[in-house]
Every structure is written in structure tokens, then in C-alpha cells.
């Protein structure tokens, strides 16, 4: 496991300002989704029982339904864990010099990239939707000066506040760069 304060290719004097993850509500939505999936077989069973159908299962149908139900729960459990892993391993780190983007896109696709704060041209925060508005989460879009694709912090808490922090750090980085060039 990685130490929270360790930064890949750390520069002298570089420090972590903040680590960002998705808002807790995103994890809660995942949890609700999988709980609903887990309840479906139980609801079907209750409905079938309430219709007073004769459910005297033979050996074959009992074995088949048992294997089906257990397989369903095993697959659902591992998919829920994969969804958690993918969401949890998406981390955006703001340091005093740059932004580090760590994204887990599926189990076999991990992207780590960084962007120097002085290269940032534009920062846009966006809250879209009912829950995003009342719970204060949303996306932060970061456009760099180069041809490099812009970064997106997805579904992070307090996007406007984060955008302000990035803008402040960007101003500071530009001032430092100008001061270094004049020396």
C-alpha cells in the first residue's frame, strides 16, 4: 500500500495539498444498487410463495435453482467489490507543483498522469443534477496549455472550492516560475 504523503517523482519542496476522491454519495449509490440486486431473488421468492403455487421441487430443479442462486450471489459480490475497487482507486492529488491523476478504468487498465500547475489555462467546476446540487459534488475540468487532454476530477466533493484552490496554486506556480526566470 502507498503512503498517503508519498508523491511519484517528488521534486524538492513538493508537498501534498489535498487528495481527492469521489463523493461519499457515489459510493452510497453503488451500495444501494448492489443491495437492490441482492434483494431481487428474495423478492421473487416471496412473490412466488405469496401466490400459493405448489412449489414442491424435485431433486433436479432444487439443485439447479440452488446453483443458480449461489452463483448469482457470488458473481454479484465480486462485481460489487470490483466497482468499489475502481471507484476507490480513482485519486486526484494536488501538490504544490502539479496535479497527479490516478485512474482505475477497469481491473486491467490503470492510468497515472500529471500536469504542472503552471501549464494550466482554465479551470471549470460543474455541479449537475439534483443530488449533486444539494450534496455539493461535481466535476472539475482542467484545461492545460499544451495539446494534452484536459483532466477531469469526477464527482468530487466541493468542486467550486477545489477549482478556487487550483486557481490559487496556479497563480502561485506562475509567480514562482516568473521569479525563477528573472533570477
Amino acid at each position: 500500500m502507498i503512503n498517503k504523503n508519498s508523491i511519484p517523482n517528488q521534486r524538492l519542496g513538493e508537498e501534498v495539498v489535498i487528495h481527492l476522491r469521489r463523493h461519499w454519495f457515489i459510493f452510497f449509490k453503488l451500495f444501494l444498487f448492489f443491495v437492490t440486486l441482492a434483494l431481487i431473488p428474495v423478492i421473487i421468492l416471496l412473490v412466488v410463495q405469496s401466490t400459493s403455487l405448489n412449489l414442491s421441487l424435485g431433486e433436479i430443479s432444487y439443485a439447479f435453482l440452488l446453483v443458480l442462486a449461489l452463483s448469482y450471489y457470488l458473481v454479484m459480490m465480486v462485481f460489487a467489490f470490483t466497482a468499489w475497487t475502481e471507484a476507490y482507486l480513482d485519486v486526484w492529488t494536488l501538490t504544490t507543483y502539479r496535479i497527479i491523476n490516478r485512474e482505475q478504468n477497469g481491473l486491467f487498465n490503470r492510468v497515472v498522469s500529471d500536469l504542472y500547475l503552471s501549464k494550466i489555462q482554465d479551470v471549470t467546476a460543474q455541479q449537475r443534477g439534483f443530488f449533486a446540487t444539494i450534496l455539493h459534488y461535481g466535476d472539475v475540468h482542467i484545461q492545460s496549455a499544451g495539446a494534452q487532454e484536459r483532466f477531469v476530477f469526477e464527482q468530487v466533493p466541493q468542486p467550486y472550492k477545489i477549482a478556487k484552490i487550483i486557481q490559487k496554486l496556479n497563480d502561485q506556480a506562475k509567480k514562482d516560475e516568473a521569479a525563477n526566470q528573472s533570477v
Binding site: I2, L74, V78, T85, L89, L107
Partner: peptide
């Protein structure tokens, strides 16, 4: 199905240990 479950569980745990924060 159990084999699939164990393989995927292993990959998930590996990723969390390899890339997750020590928290």
C-alpha cells in the same frame, strides 16, 4: 463460477494492496 470469483477477488485485492493508500 467459484474459480471466476476467486480470480477476480484476487485481482481486486492485489490492486487495493498495490495501488491503494495505507489507510
Amino acid at each position: 463460477v467459484v474459480l471466476f470469483f476467486m480470480l477476480y477477488s484476487f485481482f481486486n485485492i492485489y490492486h487495493l494492496i498495490r495501488f491503494g493508500f495505507l489507510s
